[in-house]
Design a protein around this nucleic acid. Structure first.
Lengths: 253, 253
DNA sequence: CCTTTCTGCGTAGGGCGTACGCTGTGATGC
DNA sequence: GCATCACAGCGTACGCCCTACGCAGAAAGG
């Protein structure tokens, strides 16, 4: 006669249940010296400071003054810890759209919010994603995105596809931007100098006759001007929103 | 007075130079028993058979009947090997668009070609990308994509952005599709049953009052119908192409 | 034939994640 | 007040990873 009677349905990892507040402390035994949120916070701090590759079980444990294996009383595996790190790393969702805003303004705000998070925590992009969102804040982001489409007349499946489309774009754009920053840091050169250097390298490698279109891009000097990454982001986002607008208009008529 | 006098420009890893055929064998010393393409092919075979995580230097060496450290005479690091694996894994680009086709048909064909590759070699999605494309076939894909936009009147920078937008979409879509397949295999359930199971799990976790839009999606039964992944792919691609079409029209007028 | 230069690769070092089992704690039931 | 027993902490050990280093032997030039 326990409170849990949901034998049906797939098994949820213990750490996920605790993220939803569905886990109470067993009455017996010694008091836990650590907590799941404490461990996750420490891991996030390590990732913020030294990148995702610095996040090892031993490093996180050291940060907490505990032994490596102590963590495994709280998380089932490193992957589980990473899942919780993503939930914490994204932070609270941006909130529902303002009542006056249309769907387009709402989605723009939503997309920029995610981009801002990914810009500050580029390690989020390196966490291997293992499944659809299942943690509270992740689903909160999804919720806030879906709400932007409330008055569009799109089918539920279409709303879902639109949200997936946009979040995919944001992640992709953030990945590319982060790569440039990371690449220039690794090469020890100025960030604004990386793409020109890349252009020169490619120009030296390719045969203009075999790669005419690419050669035209290179000689046009596109890579030499360092454009505001914000403009690049807005360009792609506007293209996608234009495409969605076409669909919304069609559904409205 | 060697043939190489390009001291300017960034350093290209030796393995990349050999991929461009810029490397001749030194006249002295014992004959190499291995070749870079042979090593890369072996690594690709391992990835095809057992996934990217099975690709270790020792595993590849074993496949070739060589010792682990022998590989380091040919590739500078594992990352370099991964870079070459991507080049080989993508295979030859799909070729330039047919003369009669418009840009939209051309890009559709181009996008589907990449999707087909990523569907057969899902490990390509797990290779951490470290920089812009620099290998022959990768640049060939880029070339063929750019050619589709030859007659659109877009600026070179815009063409580049469009190609980035589409390849990003294709990768994202392929990642999601692969995750479903991988997740269902890991959970040991039918692929068509995974999303419904996911829907049931989320429905049990969330409070409908706090997640109204999400709750509406779940109760609409969207996740229960297993739609053709091809339709999902086409939906997103058409939205993006619609958005690009708006831009092309504006540039034409 | 000797020297040079390169290949193959054995050894070893420093990571990593985590299975297993021991020690001690501390609330519960008698 | 005490025995019980589930559980927290964590030390040890295993197997895997990448790769720096240096040595033995092969091939070609002089």
């Amino acid at each position: 006669m326990a409170a849990k009677t949901d034998d049906s349905g797939p098994v949820i990892p213990p750490a996920i249940e605790s993220a939803w507040g569905l886990r109470e402390r067993p009455p017996k035994g010694p008091r836990p010296g650590l907590t799941v949120p404490g461990i996750v916070d420490a891991a996030v701090q390590v990732a913020d400071a030294d990148g995702l590759s610095a996040v090892s079980m031993s490093r996180v444990a050291k940060e907490l003054g505990a032994a490596t294996m102590a963590l495994y009383r709280y998380v089932g595996s490193k992957d589980e810890l990473l899942l919780l790190m993503v939930d914490t790393g994204y932070g609270p969702p941006p909130g529902p759209p303002s009542p006056g805003d249309g769907w387009r303004a709402g989605l723009t705000r939503w997309a920029r919010a995610e981009r801002d998070v990914l810009r500050h925590r580029t390690w989020l992009l390196h966490v291997p994603i293992t499944g659809p969102p299942i943690t509270p804040q992740q689903l909160g982001w999804l919720e806030d995105g879906l709400r932007c489409l409330d008055d569009t007349g799109l089918a539920e499946a279409e709303k879902m596809s639109v949200i997936l489309l946009i979040t995919g774009y944001v992640r992709n754009e953030a990945t590319l931007t982060a790569q440039i920053a990371e690449g220039s840091r690794a090469a020890g050169i100025d960030p604004g100098e990386l793409m020109p250097a890349y252009g020169r390298t490619v120009a030296r490698l390719i045969d203009p006759a075999r790669y005419p279109a690419l050669h035209r891009v290179l000689t046009s000097g596109v890579l030499n001007q360092d454009d505001d990454p914000d403009d690049e982001f807005t360009f792609g986002l506007d293209r996608i929103l234009d495409g969605i607008e076409t669909l919304v208009r069609r559904r409205a008529s």
